[in-house]
Design a protein around this nucleic acid. Sequence first.
DNA 1: GTGGTCTAGACCACT
DNA 2: GTGGTCTAGACCACT
Lengths: 125, 125, 125, 125
Amino acid sequence: MYSLDFTSKIPIYQQIVDQTKMAIIDGYLKQGDKMPSVREMVNMLLVNQSTVSRAYRELEVLGIISSVPGKGSYILLDEEKIKWEKEKFLEKLEETFREAKFLGYELAEIIEIFNNIGGQDDIKD
Amino acid sequence: MYSLDFTSKIPIYQQIVDQTKMAIIDGYLKQGDKMPSVREMVNMLLVNQSTVSRAYRELEVLGIISSVPGKGSYILLDEEKIKWEKEKFLEKLEETFREAKFLGYELAEIIEIFNNIGGQDDIKD
Amino acid sequence: MYSLDFTSKIPIYQQIVDQTKMAIIDGYLKQGDKMPSVREMVNMLLVNQSTVSRAYRELEVLGIISSVPGKGSYILLDEEKIKWEKEKFLEKLEETFREAKFLGYELAEIIEIFNNIGGQDDIKD
Amino acid sequence: MYSLDFTSKIPIYQQIVDQTKMAIIDGYLKQGDKMPSVREMVNMLLVNQSTVSRAYRELEVLGIISSVPGKGSYILLDEEKIKWEKEKFLEKLEETFREAKFLGYELAEIIEIFNNIGGQDDIKD
DNA sequence: GTGGTCTAGACCACT
DNA sequence: GTGGTCTAGACCACT
């Protein structure tokens, strides 16, 4: 499910965070699901434990998972925190749209791009 | 027209670039218009000359202005370059939309936010 | 009287301990009262017997109940032990207040919050 | 200004975070002040760079500092985020007060402890 | 010089 | 077995 690009400028821990979010959007991970343990992730992705730990910590801060020492990490979406993040994200969305508009993006293109994100059950393999 | 935030993490030269783009979207600046000279800008914004110079250089690289030594800088949109920037921007747009979708943004909200960017003729002064 | 949150990061046995203390503050349980037997608790709360046993053990260590094999468990507040716990708790209180002060809590708010804890006889059922 | 306890159960990065907050309460650090660089901190405290980096990241997440690669880290209190943290903290405050009340703390003691936190300009040396 | 990332490896407490 | 912390050391991009 996770596939890292070690040549990317995006930090590895961030890629893990991003792909976990995508897995939730696409329904691969749901509320209450157990995440792979940090060590399992280390073996799967062939990265350092610190890197996975950082990704998991980040996910916890974002209100996406809950990590319990001795037990494991679970998907636990903090709806309140996510709602707050959504509000804060508006500003970034506006900035991105200002740039998009400057570059000539039309509403129709925006709609198509948005609709093509995630939910791509048909191209699962 | 320009209003800088010196406490922001966004570099000053970048703020000048961004606000120039916005001025174009909103119609304050049009193809062929003369930009304020670097020195005028320095006096207006109370920033270092090198900062303004860097912003103008950036705007030239982006295909937005053309600076002619001894004459000044003019809005000269390089349509080809901007088309190329538009394509590169697609990736950022997708990333932003992935995050937006994760946070629960619906298409209707996206459309409304996009439509509300720029073109705010009514609040011009 | 007891109501557990199985999704919480707080261990179940700890929730039982906490709610027993609250029952004492609020006067639902008094010195000498008989606690439900471990088995009754298991049936009431639908948790594992070992979890209830651990909670009861904890309560005994804290000087709150006394368990007599073959007879049951009784509220038996060990004043000396509780006084000792009170002293140890000072450190936690200071830490909490440092954070509260950083976040901008004023004395008046602290007083109001403290006064509103427990003794909520009006919302008993 | 910073003094670490390496025998404490509180992680070192957390101690750095806590002491930075205290420095702000006590007025040693103010909005806009430059923090020691990560490497200066490493030399001052004799800990690993990762540990200091983690503390600084944590402070950034908390809306207390802003770190700019190549420039440094500055105190930049995010009033909105801190207000949000204050609201969330209410729950913890209530839990602490329930325990305090159980242990026999009286309002007068609570007030005295709260008033003695920070602002101890008189015992500076 | 600045902060940021990552690895290898060790040790800890708790379940 | 679980997550959490820390060190030593290296390398990166950006100012």
